[in-house]
C-alpha cells in the first residue's frame, strides 16, 4: 500500500523549478501534487506524478539527481478534524512523521495526505486497523 514519490535535488536559485516543470510538460507528465523542502542553498522537490517511471527517466536524462521514495497516501474526509484523527492514532503508536503534504481530490469531498513515516509498515498497519483508507499507487496516480 505504499506509493512512489519522485524526489529531486535542486539548488535554490532562479530558474531551477522552471527547468523541472518544463521537462515534465514536454514529456506530457501530469503532477498530482508536490511539495518543496528548502534551505537557503538547496531544496528537495517531491512530486507525485501520473507516470513515475517516465518522470524519473526524463529528469535523469536532463541531468537531475532523482530518486524514488516510498510514501504513504491516506484519504480522509475534507472536514475539520480529518488530519487530527490520523495524527492521534499515529502518535499513540509513537510513530514519527518525517514530512507530509496534502491535496484535495477533484470531487472536493476527500483530502489526500502524503506521509513519510519513520516506520511505514507500522503506520500502514495501525491506519488500516483504524479503518483509514490507505491508497494504492494506481489509485493515486490516476486521480
Amino acid at each position: 500500500m505504499k506509493v512512489e514519490q519522485i524526489s529531486i535535488f535542486m539548488e535554490n536559485k532562479p530558474g531551477s523549478l522552471e527547468n523541472v516543470t518544463r521537462i515534465l510538460k514536454d514529456a506530457d507528465i501530469n503532477i498530482r501534487t508536490l511539495s518543496l523542502a528548502d534551505t537557503s542553498d538547496f531544496g528537495i522537490l517531491r512530486l507525485i506524478v501520473n507516470d513515475v517511471d517516465a518522470a524519473k527517466k526524463v529528469l535523469k536524462e536532463n541531468g537531475f539527481t532523482v530518486s524514488r521514495t516510498t510514501v504513504i497516501a491516506v484519504e480522509v474526509p475534507d472536514q475539520p478534524g480529518g488530519l487530527h484523527r490520523i495524527m492521534s492514532v499515529i502518535a499513540a503508536q509513537n510513530i514519527n512523521v518525517d514530512y507530509l503534504y496534502a491535496f484535495v481530490e477533484k470531487s472536493g469531498e476527500n483530502a489526500v495526505i502524503i506521509f513519510r513515516f519513520n516506520d511505514p509498515d507500522a503506520a500502514i498497519d495501525v491506519l488500516q486497523k483504524n479503518n483509514f483508507t490507505v491508497l494504492s499507487g494506481e489509485k493515486l496516480y490516476s486521480f
Binding site: 524526489s7 529531486i8 535535488f9 528537495i44 539527481t65 532523482v66 530518486s67 518525517d98 514530512y99
Partner: peptide
C-alpha cells in the same frame, strides 16, 4: 551531489 544523496527518504535533513 550524486544519486546516492537521495537514495533513502527524500528528507532535507539528510542533506544538511
Amino acid at each position: 551531489v550524486n544519486e546516492k544523496i537521495l537514495s533513502d527518504s527524500g528528507e532535507v535533513k539528510v542533506l544538511q
